[in-house]
């Protein structure tokens, strides 16, 4: 039988990755969101070096400069500090907390979800009931209570936000793993004598990566929003350090006289949160594993 020769390489089918990219590209808003995120990250990272102002420099002679006034593109605040540089510095903090909290919550949620989904039984029930219990607390109160007891800093805020936003990932991963758990390729690994760790992280995790990425992206958006809430209420990043949330807090008093103080940080939060949500939606469609079958 000449099967070997006849088994010429299969038709060049597109790899899953390139097909996912093709689907993502069709999603206009997601492309816009991705571009906006890139611009924001670059601006926050490099922008402060390009602007000839100190974010903490108080200049009482130039208080409340309106945008484009006196060389200040976005104007100045009640202490005469340049708003653009403060916005960019605040962006560094908000984006850092957003990404760091996402990393913490995704890692923790993934481990909880994969453990619950793989082992099942009593362990699953215990872990998932714990997830439900944490979900029962209103997140914002939990956040405020924790923030009230802990000295606020970037690291502690990251941990606090991470600790209150891992449940979504845990649920998504648990569901995905549970549906894959009885698949033949997992049984095949078991009949090869694979350890639980091997099956969880080598076999199951790569198949759950799509939903994890989607949930992670949405978590960034939520973490940025959470940071803004907490800082707005005064429990987060403390002045004079700037964050989008405490800049809004600061702007409250001058809403009528200097509206730009509220408009720019507000717009920044909206843009960041919306962008991450758009990208999350785009990824959800692009990485939908069902579309990859056949």
């Amino acid at each position: 039988m000449s099967a070997a020769e006849a088994l010429a390489p299969a038709p060049p089918a597109a790899r899953p990755r390139s097909r996912a990219w093709r689907r993502f590209r069709r999603h206009r808003l997601a492309l816009f969101g991705a571009a906006a995120i890139v611009v924001m990250v670059i601006a926050a990272a490099a922008g402060p070096w390009l602007i000839p102002f100190d974010p903490l420099h108080i200049d009482l002679r130039h208080r409340f400069q309106p945008p484009a006034g006196g060389g200040h593109l976005f104007g100045t605040d009640q202490l005469g500090r340049d708003l653009l540089i403060r916005l960019l510095m605040a962006g560094r903090i908000s984006l850092t907390i957003g990404f760091a909290a996402m990393t913490v919550s995704t890692a923790f949620g993934t481990v909880v979800g994969i453990t619950a989904g793989y082992y099942g039984g009593a362990l699953r029930i215990a872990l998932m009931r714990f997830v439900d219990a944490v979900l029962c607390f209103p997140q914002i109160f939990l956040l405020l209570v924790l923030a009230a007891f802990i000295q606020p800093s970037i690291a502690t805020l990251t941990l606090i936000i991470g600790a209150t936003s891992w449940m979504e990932v845990a649920r998504v991963v648990e569901g995905q793993v549970r549906s894959l758990r009885e698949r033949d390729f997992i049984l095949a690994a078991e009949t090869l004598g694979a350890s639980g760790r091997y099956v969880m992280f080598r076999e199951l995790l790569p198949n759950a990566i799509g939903p994890i990425i989607v949930a992670a992206t949405l978590t960034v958006a939520r973490a940025i929003l959470m940071e803004a809430y907490v800082s707005f209420l005064g429990y987060g990043i403390q002045p004079p350090m700037a964050s989008w949330g405490n800049m809004l807090n600061n702007a409250q008093e001058y809403l009528a006289s200097a509206p730009w103080l509220a408009i720019f940080p507000g717009a920044a939060i909206t843009l960041a949160v919306a962008s991450f949500n758009f990208v999350g939606d785009g990824l959800r469609d692009a990485l939908d594993a069902r579309l990859d079958l056949h």
């Binding site: 033949d184 009949t191 076999e203 790569p206 198949n207």
Partner: peptide
């Protein structure tokens, strides 16, 4: 599981569905 591990290589299984039995990400 542990006690079966050294025995596993000597008894193997072929699955019916060639689509479900191979990890799509490998």
């Amino acid at each position: 599981r542990r006690a079966l591990r050294p025995i596993r290589p000597r008894m193997q299984f072929i699955f019916q569905d060639p689509f479900a039995s191979l990890n799509p990400r490998m």
